[in-house]
Nucleic acid binder design. Structure first.
Lengths: 313, 313
DNA sequence: GACGCTTACGTTCGTCGTAACTATT
DNA sequence: AATAGTTACGACGAACGTAAGCGTC
């Protein structure tokens, strides 16, 4: 068994069982790939692919299990390579962050700016998606870290750590009647049409729960995945907005007013998600700590090894 | 990077940094091992070993991290091989069980007997040790499953599952005064010299805790790691014994009497410990279920993937 | 001086790529 | 007919083992 064979195998699977495409991506010949896979099948004594005549048609049931393990082997081998680069003080590299719009736009800029200054040789990539896509990217190895408020803690394949606690606020147009009420209440909010986040985004679950508990069914007239869209429509007078407080900037958002709603909705916690057992280069720890200062290298390491460990903020 | 290089590397580390010894164990030449390791070091750009002149003296700090990852790679590769054997219906193989005396002697015989009948081609090996040794054997890959009452649940590197709940009993000689008391109490027990398990064995922690809670400090005159030694000394009149109920057999132990003490000590739970993420061959699942019928393959799999999952009995 | 690791070198085996062949759509 | 995968074959390269060299203990 050789690592190369596993690489070939996984690439064929990733290319939708197309051996030629895999060979091309691997910069090698197609017969070579074909042969190595057959050799692996022979060594293991298991057919991994079902071949219709000469065409690779599907993955056998044992093949699925084998592919899963092969991917783990390759991932660990990749960890080794990363560890090598890290210890040899190689400054170049890449950091791929998978995150949601709200985080990318309002929470990350500070940490990102500090990072690119400190590590000019490291290319930083931001991938955007919804929380479950973000989690999947990290699981699949396409991203190094996931940052999101929802979902991450429930994904078993990831180690997740709390970064920031934050809460929601209500945004309205200037001179809106809500601005005159001396204490903001859920009942008052529910009287107006609402513009807020899409399901499974930026603490939307907390918003729903708060209304449900009071037996209120607010009229949500528009949902968006990002705070800017919400703000735009609130400015247009479509309704009042419920967004993360951090998404409101009094200087930029002159056409809007923010009412703190920390007492109405549960606090949300932004979390960082990491691949279980992954080797993280020094700059990854640095980035994490720059984003969430309480997450020291030791804490992250402890969580990565322990697996089940977690703590509340 | 090749698997072979990692194999060489780990073997050298395991042989106490002796390249020649590693080469011999790997059935290859010593220069080959030496060269491959240097190549790996060059590829990774990291010195793994500190060489005093021409002698390998110690592992560098980065080397330790690299060794840890290399071992993970090899373990996954081994999983692949096991998966191959399993799916190709190869009947031969081995099952190494690390366990304590009490389990081996009183809990396992039934499951072991059924196993060797059902899988005559699989060689079953029992390794004995104290609970933490047992856990270490599985972590190190020397054993496939750990079975013990203490320790396993706390070891993070293992997935542990509850098998049997059991409790302690008090054994005394015939005509002992305790036999006449109509309700056994801790206070009554504490009046006599006690023979029981060594620290960290077979629920000894529960025994201690029960007495502590009542503020009693019983006089323990002898501790042993196995029930048979305890029984022997109780028969000799050294004191009364506290052992697992399952260790008492009225037909064999004619010179002794057993008093149930389930109401005095907390229930102990025998657990099975498995290496996190390991591939288990079919017969391993069968063995586990034969030992603890509630542990179906699906349950074991769920626990292995989930990592943090657990349930109480 | 004995042991242990490295360097040097020749053989062998394996891998890769090209080309021809065969099956599937 | 075109696309995709396997078989065949020759060239290159890498790993292995033997033998010699050099440092420690």
């Amino acid at each position: 068994m050789k690592l190369q064979q596993l690489r070939y195998l996984c690439e064929v699977a990733r290319q939708g069982l197309n051996v030629s495409a895999a060979a091309e991506r691997l910069h090698t010949s197609q017969p070579g790939v074909s042969k190595q896979i057959r050799q692996l099948e022979e060594e293991l004594g298991v057919d991994i692919f079902v071949r219709n005549g000469k065409r690779v048609a599907e993955v056998t049931e044992p093949g699925k299990a084998i592919l899963a393990i092969a991917e783990r082997v390759l991932r660990e081998a990749e960890n080794l390579r990363q560890a090598g680069k890290d210890f040899s003080n190689e400054t170049s590299g890449s950091l791929v962050i998978a995150t949601t719009h709200t985080q990318a736009r309002y929470a990350l800029p500070g940490a990102v700016k500090a990072f690119v200054q400190r590590y000019p040789g490291v290319s930083l990539v931001l991938h955007q998606g919804n929380p479950s896509q973000v989690a999947q990217m990290v699981i699949a190895g396409e991203a190094d870290v996931a940052i999101a408020t929802e979902t991450l803690a429930e994904v078993k394949e990831l180690v997740s750590l709390p970064c920031h606690a934050w809460h929601h606020g209500v945004i309205v147009r200037p001179r809106h009647p809500l601005l005159k009420e001396h204490a903001l209440s859920l009942e008052a909010i529910a009287r107006y049409p609402i513009v807020t986040y899409d399901t499974a985004f930026a603490g939307r679950s907390r918003i729903n729960r708060a209304f449900e508990r009071k037996g209120l069914s607010p009229r949500v007239v528009l949902t968006a995945i990002d705070s800017d869209v919400i703000k735009t429509y609130v400015e247009l007078g479509l309704g009042i907005g419920i967004v993360a407080c951090m998404a409101f900037d009094p200087r930029r958002d002159r056409g809007l007013r923010m009412l703190d709603a920390g007492h109405l909705f549960e606090t949300s916690t932004t979390r960082i998600g990491l691949r279980h057992g992954a080797f993280l280069r020094r700059y990854v720890y640095d980035f994490i700590q720059s984003f969430a200062p309480q997450l020291t290298r030791d804490m992250v390491d402890a969580a990565m090894r322990g697996g089940g460990i977690d703590f509340e903020m």
